[in-house]
């Protein structure tokens, strides 16, 4: 791997994740990028690094590979606390007839976010209520991991309360496997956020955390625009903690209200009512960004 390629990739990782790769880690970077380069049809890791500057999907995969140990359960804690203490009671108050919640973990990676939410729903949803969690990712390998629901010992140590470990997992060889009740709550689907979304419906909570950082500005804006019609009018969109102060164009800025919940800033469809509106209203608001 050429020193220039290493510098490029180190700068990219530093900018996107604040993780520092020192020059002595060149070997590690090469080892992790080599399979991706081969998969992408690049003749060398150097060629692959060149490709990253123009290909956001590969850029995301590369950063994933280089930050492979970064996934935790209940990552950052605060969003999950805000979910149980504020969002969940508010959503339930508006859904006493339907008694169902829909949640989307967009860019689910190996599934810790989706299953963390599933654990909280198991603890806090009253009897008679149901929930489903859609977990999407651009990587089919990651979707398979979510479906298998199996995690290594090292992954289990990352931010998962011991009480939840014993309650929601069983030992499977050297790994731990999520219990069927939680796995049933989560369904997976392949989805590239950078492209138009398929028909997936509307969600009461969308988790779009720590993923926008992988995209360039126009793509980020496109995702936030498309996302609007998939968040229920009284629903919530959660971004990563470093992603909430994005510089948005005026019309897009006006599409979302910002609500501070504890240490978390939630985005909510602008002009949202406390009771669900017909979806056509939501849709036209999404297109025009206008408040009704």
């Amino acid at each position: 791997m050429a020193p220039a390629s290493f510098q490029l990739i180190a700068a990219l990782v530093l900018r996107e994740t604040s993780i520092i790769y020192e020059p002595r880690k060149e070997y590690l970077v090469e080892a992790r990028l080599h399979p991706l380069a081969a998969q992408a049809g690049c003749a060398s890791v150097d060629a692959y690094v060149q490709m990253l500057s123009i290909n956001p999907v590969e850029r995301r995969k590369a950063i994933d590979a280089l930050t492979i140990n970064e996934t935790s359960w209940f990552r950052d804690n605060a969003p999950y606390q805000a979910f149980t203490e504020t969002m969940l009671p508010a959503l339930m108050a508006n859904r006493t007839e339907r008694r169902h919640l829909s949640i989307w973990s967009a860019a689910c990676s190996s599934g810790q976010e989706a299953y963390s939410i599933a654990m909280l729903l198991d603890q806090h949803l009253p009897a008679g209520w149901t929930a489903d969690i859609l977990a999407t990712d651009v990587s089919t390998a990651m979707l398979t991991r979510v479906e298998n629901g199996r995690y290594s010992q090292v992954e289990m140590n990352r931010g998962l309360p011991a009480t939840s470990l014993v309650k929601y997992f069983t030992r499977a060889g050297s790994e731990w496997e999520i219990v069927p009740a939680l796995r049933k709550m989560v369904r997976t689907r392949h989805l590239n956020l950078a492209e138009p979304f398929p028909v997936i419906g509307t969600f009461d909570l969308v988790l779009l955390r720590n993923v926008l950082i992988y995209f360039d500005q126009p793509t980020k804006h496109g995702i936030l625009r498309r996302m609007h019609q998939h968040v229920a009018s009284d629903g919530y969109l959660l971004l990563g903690s470093s992603e909430t102060t994005l510089d948005l164009p005026a019309d897009l800025h006006a599409m979302w209200d910002r609500e501070q919940i504890g240490r978390v800033q939630a985005h909510r469809p602008a002009g949202g009512l406390t009771v669900p509106r017909p979806s056509s209203t939501t849709f036209s608001a999404a297109l025009t960004g206008a408040r009704p």
Partner: peptide, 23 residues
Amino acid sequence: PELADVHAIVEQVWSSFLGDEEP
């Protein structure tokens, strides 16, 4: 135990404490 499980355990101990620069 299954060899694959032994391998996985040793690998995890190794990478957790001895770094993954030298595999």
